[in-house]
Amino acid sequence: MDTPLREPTFLILTALAREPMHGYAIIGEVAALSDGRLSLRPGTLYGALDRLTDAGLVELDREETVDGRLRRYYRLSPTGDATLAAETERLRRNVEAATARLRARSVQPLAPRTAGGLA
């Protein structure tokens, strides 16, 4: 699986980090994690789950039938866990770097540049 992860992939793995989930629950969790910005549809979700399974990041946990409907639960594999942790660390460092730059700028206002340098 190519890194950096795309946002839907990152959020699906994040959703599964807490506990194994079925497709409907993953869709709800991804919507909550993204503050409603990302609304996955089942065709897209199951395609993503197939790719994540192919890449060894997600595994089948168990199957249940609820109200006559088949539900498969998915969980993070150890590789998926490590990939999510590495990606989160990468994003955290980026956020820290950006935050430090922005904080420094707000403390020390930008001075206008002088043309021609020192005389």
Binding site: Y24, I27, R41, P42, G43, L45, Y46, R69
Partner: peptide, 23 residues
């Protein structure tokens, strides 16, 4: 198939009779 259709039905309004264009 059962899993995918089940998820669409979980998400759909029970009064709906046709899949949405987006679905």
């Amino acid at each position: 198939g059962d899993e995918i259709v089940g998820t669409y039905l979980d998400l759909a309004d029970p009064r709906r009779r046709w899949p949405s264009v987006a679905d």
